[in-house]
Amino acid sequence: MSWRRLGRRLLQAVPVLLLVAIGVFVLLELAQGDAVDAYLAGIGGAGDLTLAAELRQRYGLADSLGARFLTYATSLATLDLGWSIAFARPVLDVILERLPKTLLLMGSGILLAALLGIGLGALAALRRGRPTDTVVTTAALVLNATPGFWLGLLLIIVFSVELRWLPLGGFSTLDSRATGLAAVLDTARHLVLPAATLGLTYFALYLRLMRGAMLAAAESGWVTAAKARGLPTRRIVLRHMARPALLPVVTMLGLQSGTMLGGSVVVETVFAIPGLGSLAFEAVSQRDLPLLAGILLAGTVLVVLVNILVDIVYGRLDPRVGDNLGRVAGD
């Protein structure tokens, strides 16, 4: 991936971002009640109209529709994410606080889904038609049909409530002053169930892709030729079957990164993780336009970045590009 290509990618994202930004504005305009209503609901009312009027003045909610849109558009155009009404803090601060948690959750969920999908998919392909294949594909099918929130609750019932092996939720042990390895292990313990929930509900897709691609590769000329040349099975499987089969899997990983963010809303709710997904839900219910816009922009940037990463990995995997060309990315 060259800088020029990167630039083009980002440029392509501009009209998309514009549409998303307009969409966010229209969406919150359609809602009954504004940010001040949500705030007043939270504090139990105000007794008269003046407080609401003052607050609307303060947040520019009393302006006309056109003026509000102009303010909104200007601040977005200058990349000023603005001030979150619900949190009374800069939007950027709020997002940066939540982003690492969601990244870690999504990252480990995707990683788990990919590893499970690739590993089990390859296994199923190599044992095609045998009991292993049936068991693995059936399990994937059933898990794929399972709602994430329910799987999460089941895992909680088994591992947190009954066995008491893992924490019920949250992201780290409260007020833990642990540092270094202990802190990492603590977070890892909290991540096991939510990441497993995401990974288990999403891996079926990768499994199917991997299994199918492996089988297709097995019938290809490459493998026949390699067999004829008497190459060791291990080498054939890894180099001529698994490697090309990874291509569609990697492509799908890029496409799925956006979906995962949606899935994380539910998982974050079930496991009480203060991440970006639950923040988005809150931004909608608080009618917090700047915050919601900020979150969606952050999500879009995230998806673009993931796709760039996918491009790089793709370059390294594609046999036609060959072993050396994968390094072009850095130039």
Binding site: A31, Q32, G33, D34, A35, D37, A38, Y39, L40, A41, G42, V284, S285, Q286, R287
Partner: peptide
């Protein structure tokens, strides 16, 4: 409705 929507409605 959510709290803000309920109040306004």
């Amino acid at each position: 409705a959510d709290p803000g929507g309920h109040i306004a409605a």
